[in-house]
Amino acid sequence: MGIDPQHEIGPSGFAAALEYRGVSFAYPARAADGPSVPVLSDVTLSVSHRERLGVLGPNGGGKSTLLKLTLGLIKPTRGTIRVLGREPGAARAEGLVAYVPQKSGAELAFPISARQVVLQAATLHLPAWKRTDAESIRRAEWALSLVGATEYADRHAGALSGGQLQRVWIARALANRPRLLLLDEPTVGIDPAGQQQFSDLLTRLRNEMDLTIVVVSHDLRTVAAGCDRVACLARTLHFHDAPGGLTPAVLAEVFRHDVSAIFGDVHIDAHRAAECAHHHPTQGAGAGGASRPIVDGGRSS
């Protein structure tokens, strides 16, 4: 599935898997007369079914806010969001959208096995008086086998490695057979080999389940590997599936500081990038047209 220019415009109506139209979000002012804190401004986005979108941005750039909005945990200040044609909260309630948080959220001293973690999600919708039923167990086992976690399903969650835990979180998210999967900083604490396996896993899930996937990270490699498109998010959203691709100029503009420190061995001439951004401040992607593209628009697989 290469890049279809139509994706950028988005189909009319709400046929897309995920659609943002002119969405802004600001946290309310701290003092009664103080300014509100803008986090996202005028974000328009359309993610097609079965697309894999990477959202790259610095910390504080609004990535978590984007996820919370998509899950319906917070409401946009302005604009419209549709998840599979529904209000975000309704889509979440129907189990159509699932979320893989950063691993830091869980209490790993909790006495729970990997299988039980997945069962927690699979049985959440059951009425209180009902016992765990065969259907929930079957779905949990299916999700565990899909991510390849069956062999350590009985182990204590706190005893798993970062990569194993990551698979368990994904299995938990898949247990209710969602259509849209959101991943927040999925490769933090995972070694490069594990990251490659992780990217392959997402590709397989997309193909087997017809999933639409949104990966959000501050790490270029995480969002670039295997994604159809990459969007840069720093309060506003820039798409970079044009032939020019993601260039140092764009990255410098998005991150506004020493980019090479973030991307490790990916060589970026931050000074030159900043210069480009300075000369062409309004043309995000276009400004770097002459520079070496770091990531092209298409999937790198």
């Binding site: 899950l71 973690v117 049985t123």
Partner: peptide, 16 residues
Amino acid sequence: RPMAFWAFDPRAAEAF
């Protein structure tokens, strides 16, 4: 069920 989910992973529980 919600109590155990929340106790184990409050942030994920909210999202679920």
